[in-house]
Amino acid sequence: MKLRLETAAMDALTVRLFDTIDESNMAWIIAADQTLRKALGEALIDLIPSYTTLLVHYDCQQLTFAQVTTLIRGALRHLTPAESQNGQLHEIPVWYDESVGPELGGVAKRAGLSVDALIERHCNHDYCVFALGFAPGYGFMGLVDEDIATPRLKTPRRKVAPGSVGIADRQTAIYPLLSPGGWNILGRTAVPLFEYAKRGEPLLRPGDKVRFKAISKKEFEAAGGDTTPMEERS
């Protein structure tokens, strides 16, 4: 871990801790997140942690540029990584099927695997949640087995159904709501990722782990899953 503060905007700084993606970053990022929230208090407007950085948006009517940099450096001087057992393990049931996961066949073929073997490979790892972003509750997870890593679609879909589970390179994610997207979709889950009306809290948090579990169409329907085939393609 080495700390660098970078100007991001008039009232925002990027706190850079690492240069590469690694699961071991997360304990540091989570610790820095907690420490900075405490240190900035009321002067903090937003704090967005990601794979290697934290974006600090502060209230420039309360703190000047010089004050905020001094404050952040001081707060992070003696940072120690967070306890790793803080994260939760979520088991996410997924119905892997061509009708709701149009790239299932293509990704399997590319990897030289049968569809069943691909599904097994995707389920065979506890993925780390690195960051939330792109859409409310959208967790960037990884790292996917190198053998099944697949680049994004050349042309993104205009509409990806909510609950779609996809991969892009060595990352995997679940689309919380209907949105455009360019990831390779393998299946669908009925688990809600973000229910703002009810809880206003996302299911996944940075540092959590996710294990996918293949289920049948019957089980998916029983869980309230929508079996409508992947919507309109662009």
Binding site: A8, A9, M10, D11, A12, T14, T20, I21, I48, P49, S50, Y51, T52, T53, L54, L55, H57, A131, G133, F140
Partner: peptide
């Protein structure tokens, strides 16, 4: 770059 937080006006 590795995805990171984006401020207003970026």
């Amino acid at each position: 770059i590795i995805s990171e937080g984006i401020p207003l006006g970026a």
